[in-house]
Amino acid sequence: MSLGDTHLTVLGWIGSDPDFKEIGQTPHTSFRLGSTPRQFDRSLNTFVDKPTTWFTVQCWRGLAQNAFESVRIGQPVIVTGRLRTHEWTDDSGEQHSRVILEAFSVGHDLSRGTTTFTKTPPRSESLTESSPQRAESRPAETTASPYPADEFSTTTLPLAPTAPAAEAA
């Protein structure tokens, strides 16, 4: 995170088919996200929709692949990311710009339904699958812990003081 970045979390609905492509060799997925706030109108005694705000969401690398395989038009999602401004000049020399939500995280809104999660394999494994020699040397089946390995070693702390009482005073 750098100074001046605008981070945003948006609850909304997928408004377009996710578009997947590789830029260089980097996976990229983009889609439109609509967010419509609701407000209670006392005169009508009901909730009414306010104007919809539309975002273009861009996902990169592993998130791009997972988002493309997971989200569809009409599904409720929560997207967290940073706002970016994309500026360009068209063929006639006219300046244009648009705001893009560059996603860090995309997930289904579980207050509106259920979903099933499937963990993707680590990147090093997915790269070796394309190599037939390495694929043969791997074990056929592996077991993984649902929790990551501890980052720090643990040492037990003594529960009783180890120094004599006379030294402590």
Rank of each mutant, 00 (worst) to 15 (best):
M1S: 13
M1L: 12
L8W: 01
V10K: 01
V10W: 00
V10S: 02
W13T: 15
G15D: 10
S16M: 06
D17L: 03
D17A: 09
P18R: 02
F20W: 11
E22R: 11
I23V: 15
G24C: 05
S30N: 13
S30T: 15
R32F: 08
S35N: 09
T36N: 07
P37E: 13
P37Y: 06
Q39P: 00
Q39W: 00
V48P: 02
D49P: 01
K50R: 14
T56E: 11
V57H: 00
V57Y: 05
Q58R: 11
C59Q: 00
W60F: 14
R61Y: 05
G62Q: 12
G62K: 10
E69A: 13
G74M: 03
P76N: 09
P76W: 02
G81D: 04
R84A: 10
R84Y: 02
E87K: 15
W88H: 08
T89C: 06
T89L: 02
S92E: 13
G93E: 05
S97W: 02
R98E: 13
L101I: 04
E102H: 09
A103W: 00
F104L: 10
F104G: 03
S105H: 08
H108F: 15
D109I: 01
T114K: 09
T115Q: 08
T115K: 04
F117Q: 08
K119C: 10
E125G: 00
L127W: 01
E129H: 08
E129R: 15
P132Y: 05
Q133S: 07
Q133N: 05
A135C: 05
E136R: 13
R138D: 04
A140R: 14
E141T: 11
T142F: 04
A144I: 07
S145P: 03
P146V: 05
D150T: 10
E151H: 08
F152V: 10
F152D: 12
S153N: 13
T155N: 03
T155S: 12
L159V: 08
A160H: 08
P161C: 06
T162H: 05
P164I: 07
P164F: 04
E167A: 12
A168L: 15
A169M: 08
